[in-house]
Design a protein around this nucleic acid. Structure first.
Lengths: 222, 222
DNA sequence: TGTACCTTCTGACTTAAATTCAAAAAATGA
DNA sequence: TCATTTTTTGAATTTAAGTCAGAAGGTACA
């Protein structure tokens, strides 16, 4: 009867609508001022309806994390299509990551929210958990790919296990970006500002530091 | 009349008592199941009293963060008293950091809570904010010191700005430790486990990666 | 010792926000 | 058109933080 398919589609559309409403709240007020009443109001549905489309608030935020991590993993995947050496790809992925966090800070925060949930072990039964995880894995796989390419083309030192190196790059760049993001909010006391450190120079030095560690000797001398 | 001093001391004692109660809840149930009723019960005071000693829940958690960051900064300061090269000190500080996070995961989480507050810009008017920040600065300063020592004794490449390098090391090791901590909680999907990566080997490789970047050539050849 | 005053403590109350659910409204299909 | 199913609603519930008027306990001085 085909009706059910249409309904399914409409349901998805509405779900997307609610997500957009939630995003708009987040962009305006920040993730930790997200509240269900306001989402309902902006999405022009009743509060009760939200819960027909999302299991709970966490589920809703994970929905946003899913969009966010999807965007990021796309951006990262694009790097692999460029005509670059593996090492350059790694640099590029790093910039992409940083650029994403700077231009979508609240989305980036939603991704951290997901990580935090994992950290506390309370992942709930959100269907988005798997989607988020897949997005993350996808980005991560791109990273591994770039490293493998670099090992093949001789731009990256083959002495490391590609996966392990990918984890290292992932974790360290995440740490760096978190710090940068934290420092953007003004406060009476923040590392970068206080020590007069420029983000771009910091990032370059990160690349240099990492670069020294992973590039082949040939590459370094250039 | 001296009474007020005694009272002040007693007030501090009680404050510490409440903090301990809160810590015990956190150790048992995790930071995000901390609730004021339970703290009151364990500290054997009324709920209202909590608010005589702490402005609000955030203030209480920052009190714990203060303890935590104090412990960590002490541990780190100790490294500087050892008879080591600057580069070895940096390694040591890294291990100290990792070790701290592994043995006091909830305290470490409380420190992240502080960072998160800074991130969202809502530091409230907790008196602990400054204390936490000072602790952090202290650790950070130890790091700078170690780097300077290393540049003097020739174990660390002088090509970097010590502060900037310290920020890099700080941020990247934080990122790495966050990842490790996340992965400790079991979940159906986590990077390290899934890719069969051992934490110790990961950490060693981090040191190696970083080491290549910051050590002097002389040092590397050894 | 009694009493006025001050400080600290208490727990019932208020508030805010997430979540539920019985009943209303809308859609479906014979 | 009308019975049945699906979807929506918003008032009610729940939970946990935070408040505050009054109780309890101290202190000082006659």
């Amino acid at each position: 009867m085909g009706t059910s398919e249409r309904k399914e589609r409409e349901k998805e559309k509405k779900r997307a609508l609610i997500l957009e409403a939630a995003e708009s709240v987040i962009l305006e007020k920040g993730l930790d001022h997200l509240n269900m009443d306001e989402v309902a109001e902006r999405a022009e549905v009743s509060k009760g309806s939200l819960y027909l489309y999302f299991r709970n608030k966490t589920d809703l935020v994970l929905g946003i994390c899913n969009k966010a991590s999807g965007m990021l993993s796309n951006d990262i995947a694009k790097v692999l299509t460029k005509d670059l050496s593996g090492l350059e790809m790694i640099y590029n992925i790093g910039s992409t990551f940083l650029e994403f966090a700077r231009s979508h800070p609240e989305h980036f925060r939603a991704m951290r929210f997901f990580d935090n949930l994992k950290d506390t072990g309370e992942l709930s039964e959100s269907e988005y958990v798997n989607l988020c995880q897949v997005n993350k894995e996808t980005s991560f796989t791109s990273m591994i790919r770039a490293i493998q390419i670099g090992m093949q083309d001789g731009s990256i030192n083959s002495g490391y296990d590609p996966k392990e190196l990918a984890v290292l790059l992932w974790a360290t760049s995440q740490g760096l970006i978190n710090l940068v993001q934290m420092d953007q909010k003004e406060s009476n006391f923040n590392l970068l500002e206080q020590h007069n450190i420029d983000v771009n120079s910091l990032f370059e030095n990160y690349m240099k530091l990492i670069g020294c560690g992973i590039a082949t000797d040939k590459e370094i001398s250039e």
